[in-house]
């Protein structure tokens, strides 16, 4: 279980996280919704230890990872995968080398075994045979899918998705959502997904949380969120420009 407790982060004068409290249960898919620039990606980066909070804790299986040294953090990261907003593929490596990166670094698998894993993951994300392409030859959607294949290559227990379906067409969005659900079913993966895509959020989220103003202002199941009387929630899910939620 992941417990985030009173997490605060400030960048210069800007207070991005103002006491986030959140529990994510094992095997659960939690979707974090919220307007652009509200700090959702910053929250994800705290969960994987890329950022240190000014205050607060991130407890994973009861241990506060904000106090971890590099060695323990690396050991934890071997159990996690992250899909970045921009996919963050290594430009100088082929698709296969990108996906195989963690496997080559941290396992003693043979080249053939790694090649099989890479091909399997590429097939899962709908890109069979793309092994030898360079990231510069891929469209935005393809890059994201390769990023996802890389995130799941080591079969992690926890996957963090930073806007996994942004830039994808509706059919591919649905395919990625189905992949997400199958990973959850097959491997019992715990997922934290940051997205703006409400349809996708409703499909994959066991619970949905609304992040606004540096805090989690609402959390609940799909039905609880849809039926929430909170004007912030209603404005966000209806996509209205006017309301209590101001544009950042």
């Amino acid at each position: 279980m992941i417990i985030i407790s009173n997490l605060c982060k400030r960048f210069g004068p800007k207070e991005v996280l103002r006491g986030i409290n959140l529990k994510i249960y094992d095997g659960e898919s939690l979707v974090i919704l919220g307007p652009s620039g509200c700090g959702k990606s910053v929250l994800l980066k705290h969960i994987i230890g890329l950022l240190k909070p000014d205050e607060g804790q991130v407890l994973i299986d009861g241990e506060d990872i904000t106090k971890f040294d590099q060695k323990r953090l690396d050991a934890l990261r071997m159990r996690m995968g992250m899909l970045f907003q921009s996919a963050a593929l290594f430009d100088s490596l082929t698709v296969e080398e990108n996906i195989a990166f963690g496997l080559r670094k941290h396992t003693n698998l043979s080249d053939l075994a790694i090649h099989h894993i890479v091909s399997e993951k590429l097939e899962m994300v709908g890109l069979p045979g793309a092994n030898h392409l360079m990231p510069s030859e891929l469209s935005g959607g393809m890059r994201k899918r390769v990023g996802l294949a890389r995130a799941i290559a080591m079969e992690p227990e926890i996957i963090l998705y930073d806007e996994p379906t942004t830039g994808l067409d509706p059919i591919m969005t649905c395919a990625i959502d189905e992949l997400h659900l199958s990973l959850k079913e097959r491997l019992g993966v715990t997922s934290i997904v940051v997205t703006h895509d409400l349809n996708s959020a409703y499909r994959i989220g066991d619970r949905l949380a609304l992040h606004y103003g540096g805090r989690i202002v609402a959390i609940g199941t799909k039905d609880e969120i849809i039926n929430s009387p909170d004007p912030l929630v209603q404005q966000f899910i209806r996509g209205e420009a006017k309301g209590p939620m101001t544009l950042l």
Partner: peptide
């Protein structure tokens, strides 16, 4: 610098690579 602003360096760290 390009790797930094496109989060590739963050990606390296998430894969337990210094």
């Amino acid at each position: 610098g390009t790797m930094k602003i496109t989060e590739q360096i963050d990606a390296l760290e998430t894969m337990a690579t210094n």
